[in-house]
Design a protein around this nucleic acid. Sequence first.
DNA 1: CCGCTTCAGTGACTAGGTCACACAGTGGCG
DNA 2: CGCCACTGTGTGACCTAGTCACTGAAGCGG
Lengths: 218, 218
Amino acid sequence: MSDWTRDFAILDALDEASRTQLLAHSHAMQAPAGTVLFREGSPCQAYLFLLQGQIRVQKVGENGREITLYRVESGQTCIVTTACLMSGNDYDAEGVAETAIHAQALPIPAFRQLLADSASFRDFVFRAYGSRIADLLLLIEEVSFGRIDQRLAACLLQRARGQAALSTTHQELAAELGSAREVISRQLKEFERRGWIRLGRGQLQLLDAGALQQLAGK
Amino acid sequence: MSDWTRDFAILDALDEASRTQLLAHSHAMQAPAGTVLFREGSPCQAYLFLLQGQIRVQKVGENGREITLYRVESGQTCIVTTACLMSGNDYDAEGVAETAIHAQALPIPAFRQLLADSASFRDFVFRAYGSRIADLLLLIEEVSFGRIDQRLAACLLQRARGQAALSTTHQELAAELGSAREVISRQLKEFERRGWIRLGRGQLQLLDAGALQQLAGK
DNA sequence: CCGCTTCAGTGACTAGGTCACACAGTGGCG
DNA sequence: CGCCACTGTGTGACCTAGTCACTGAAGCGG
């Protein structure tokens, strides 16, 4: 088995024949961090597996505001790509590499063939759909009914991943949540006033993760 | 071919063997208008085709506010159901019959079998996914970045479907858009002040569809 | 050290959501 | 017919979030 397949969970689930088929017909591709992989309106030619790295999929409004829809991580696939593929429409979101990425592209005919041949591949594809749709529904709920302070608190905790500090700008946080930079700045200032965090240029420290947790969880 | 299959577009696309398979393993079900077909947290046992009628799929927030995610119409399938089915999770949305409905339910094993056997069935399922995901992304964009007056204007036009009058309450419109009744009332009042519509209890008339169109399209 | 760029802070204002309450149609029922 | 409950609508006061315009501070390259 070649090197890149190590992190590629789906391969374990596939039978030998399907695996061979997959490897034979797909080709490797890679891109540096910051690459725009696809944008709204561009067509879509291949089914994409992400082998290594992270992709942010986002919507960009006319006024320039952004919101992150979800992230594609190692071993996952991008359902917006798949959705376009199957329905024949163009992309209606934008994908940006957050890190350098290695991916494997499976052209449409080979994709269809594999779908036909392998039950485990079908399962993988459908499971991906299912969990993404759940993500999107949750996002709609948060955007429609959620409070920005709670969403921000959750966002900070998630980004910190247990670390006490994280490097990010207010603008990035705003783009994550689909809000405006000024709003985030004010909320963060309020968090700092309460002693939950300490602000610095391009970075911030979590002083009281518990308080954030409580706010986020409410 | 039995009676209910008339409006069932997918049957035309399926080969004879798959069609027979589909009909043999699914069973008919029906429900009156207003029935809650599924709600958040309930599990999911079968793949559902809607033969006749209309289903509204919505999210309900803790505070009671609602937002319509999409509608399932005759000949379509509900992807939230499918998503749950394949990922094994419970529903994370609520489905309500807006009219009396006739549906056909295909139990999971038969669904998987059909997916394996019929390329055209796979296409149907995937195409449904693709267009729904596009819908959801559009909804996220509107909710995040859109203006409520524009969304309301679009909603009125869509509901009127060329008719000059429509019967609905402000509360229903608010639930459609994920907004609050008072907000909708005020917007409608403003539309009336501009001479675009005339308000009545439980119904309203469109006087200047063009103006609404222009507002909605901006 | 200077000047440019990026990042953050702030006040004034607008849009939209919440709360509390008033009041008007409508339909049932004595 | 008149009373009454229920549902739908109108409205003011207030709060949260987003927008606009601007200031100033931090870092960085020359």
